[in-house]
Simulated scan of single mutants.
Amino acid sequence: MTNATLERTTLDISETLRKNSTLVYPFVSVFAIIAYFTITSPQFLTFDNATNIGRQAAVLLLVALAGTVVILIGSIDLSVGANVTLSGLVTAAAVDRVGLLGAIVVGVLAGAAIGFTNGVIYTGLKVPSFLVTLGTMSVCAGVAGHLSGGSAIVYSSTALPGFVNSKSVLGIPNVIFIVLAVAALLTAVSFRTKFGRYLYAIGGGEPVAVLSGINLRRYKVLAFVLGGALCGLGGVILTGQVQAGSPSAGDALLLDSIAAVVMGGTALSGGLGGAHRTVLGVVVIALLSNGMDLTGVNNFTQEIVKGLVVVASVALTIDRSRYSFIK
Rank of each mutant, 00 (worst) to 15 (best):
V59F: 11
A249P: 04
G115Q: 04
G271A: 05
V284S: 10
F44G: 10
G203V: 08
A35N: 04
S248W: 07
A57K: 13
F130R: 04
R18G: 05
S248A: 14
G74A: 09
Q43L: 13
G149H: 08
Y198A: 14
P247K: 04
G245P: 06
N118E: 11
A92E: 08
G115H: 06
A35L: 10
A35Q: 04
T68K: 01
R55S: 08
V80E: 09
R218Y: 15
V70C: 03
V225L: 04
T266L: 06
S75N: 14
V139H: 10
D293F: 12
L255W: 03
V279Y: 02
N174W: 09
L170K: 06
Y122W: 05
F224C: 02
D96S: 00
L211Y: 14
S168M: 09
T136P: 09
A183P: 10
L78D: 12
I214L: 05
F37S: 08
G245I: 06
V221I: 14
T51F: 02
D77S: 00
L233F: 02
V282T: 15
A188K: 01
E7D: 11
A58I: 12
G54A: 05
S289G: 04
L287S: 13
S269Y: 14
G196D: 07
V108P: 02
L100Q: 10
I285F: 00
N215Y: 12
I285G: 02
N299C: 15
E303Q: 13
V106P: 03
L109Q: 13
D77E: 00
S246I: 13
K19F: 08
L280D: 03
I39G: 08
A110W: 00
G227F: 03
A144Y: 05
V179C: 12
L109S: 10
C231Y: 10
A57V: 07
F130N: 13
V164G: 06
N3F: 11
L316M: 15
A112C: 14
V143R: 08
V132G: 15
R217P: 08
A229N: 07
V179D: 12
T187D: 02
A159Q: 03
G204C: 00
S190I: 11
A223M: 01
V139E: 09
D48F: 12
A94G: 13
I178G: 08
G307N: 08
I172M: 04
F31K: 10
S41T: 05
L211S: 15
G234S: 12
E15K: 13
A315K: 12
T85W: 01
G135Q: 01
I172Q: 02
L254I: 05
G204M: 03
A112D: 14
G135Y: 04
S269R: 05
L61Y: 15
V225H: 09
T68F: 09
L101T: 12
I202T: 14
S313D: 05
L78Y: 02
L294S: 01
A252Q: 04
I214P: 07
T46Q: 13
V80G: 09
D48K: 15
I202Q: 03
K220P: 02
F300W: 11
D293S: 14
L134S: 07
F44D: 13
G88A: 09
V297H: 07
G213S: 08
V310L: 13
A152K: 05
K167S: 10
